[in-house]
Design a protein around this nucleic acid. Sequence first.
DNA 1: TTGATTTGTTGACTTTTATCAATTTTTTTA
DNA 2: TAAAAAAATTGATAAAAGTCAACAAATCAA
Lengths: 189, 189
Amino acid sequence: MHPALKEYLSGKLDLSLQDEQLVSRCFKSKFAARNEIMVAKGAVARHLYFVVKGCLRVFLTGEDGSESTRFLVVEGRFGTAFPSFILRQPSAAAIQSLESSELLTLSYEDRQTLYEQVPGWETMDRIGLELDYIASIQRIESFITMDAKMRYEILQQTNPDLIRRLPAKIIADYLGISQETLSRLKAKR
Amino acid sequence: MHPALKEYLSGKLDLSLQDEQLVSRCFKSKFAARNEIMVAKGAVARHLYFVVKGCLRVFLTGEDGSESTRFLVVEGRFGTAFPSFILRQPSAAAIQSLESSELLTLSYEDRQTLYEQVPGWETMDRIGLELDYIASIQRIESFITMDAKMRYEILQQTNPDLIRRLPAKIIADYLGISQETLSRLKAKR
DNA sequence: TTGATTTGTTGACTTTTATCAATTTTTTTA
DNA sequence: TAAAAAAATTGATAAAAGTCAACAAATCAA
């Protein structure tokens, strides 16, 4: 098993040797170039992606070519175009590798296999889902209760690495504000 | 078992007679008066609520007394102050019954019991969680990509009942806009 | 049913943020 | 490393939404 995945699982789940081998077989290694589109808008997202190294962006495109970042997925985290993956429908969002990335992919079918075959896998996954859901609830709250400056400050506190690492325009998209507004926000203090 | 819960479960899960009795014992009936606060801000949300009749609101309060509606939970749906319930921490949000409501409550511990004792319960719950998560992702997208008018139009299309049923100020909170802006939006067409 | 309270509407004005455009800075790649 | 491309900054202006205030309408509770 890939050490990064092993690290992810440690403390969450104890696997028998056999189960560990099954998990290993289900996750396929994949490398993506910087800016590579993994899943295009309109395609079905058939995999979950575990980021070993690099960074993925799940983003929407408007008719006018504008882009809005729905999610950013960094090292040690899972991500995909979730509605498409779960509902098995064409995705409103595209998935892009923002950096040269190393990924482990898990297909919908293999995920099902793990639920059925590996004791504790579904519980672990359910707990991970709960935490992702909580994060998205908190993001919704930030839009309902905060202005752009406050959202940026919170992001600075909770994810300073993201800000350091990614182009400001991506951060601006993620915060739901324009590039120019973010630039002014940063200048102001 | 309460017929509303039975209806919810039908098609999702086949229960043995024994399991059905266990489920029945885990869910406690509760009635709430209009405007009753079920969980105050700062308290831990110890239950999931299934709404048989009525409507719950999960909302945040600012220091200035302003309120922001995080979620609305109507008949046939589950809800709670989710981060508090899962993390077992004091809740940032309060839960209020907007109408005279009939509820079924499931404690954290009883939820655990159902996961452990009832085959298929965790899978059913995981799938429900996935759908709730998808809904919250779509709500995030609406904040990132749409203006107030568009968000309101989408809500009209997807939940016309909510608009008909609830005071406009609650809908405005839920959309993340001021009461006045919503009033003007409605007048404009 | 009526007085009191809450909710909704509208106007005037302010603040926040977006948009467009020009320029500088940084990054990429040939 | 140099030219090209992409990203960031800054200014001017416009649009969107918020705030405050007054009043109207609807709802509630005695």
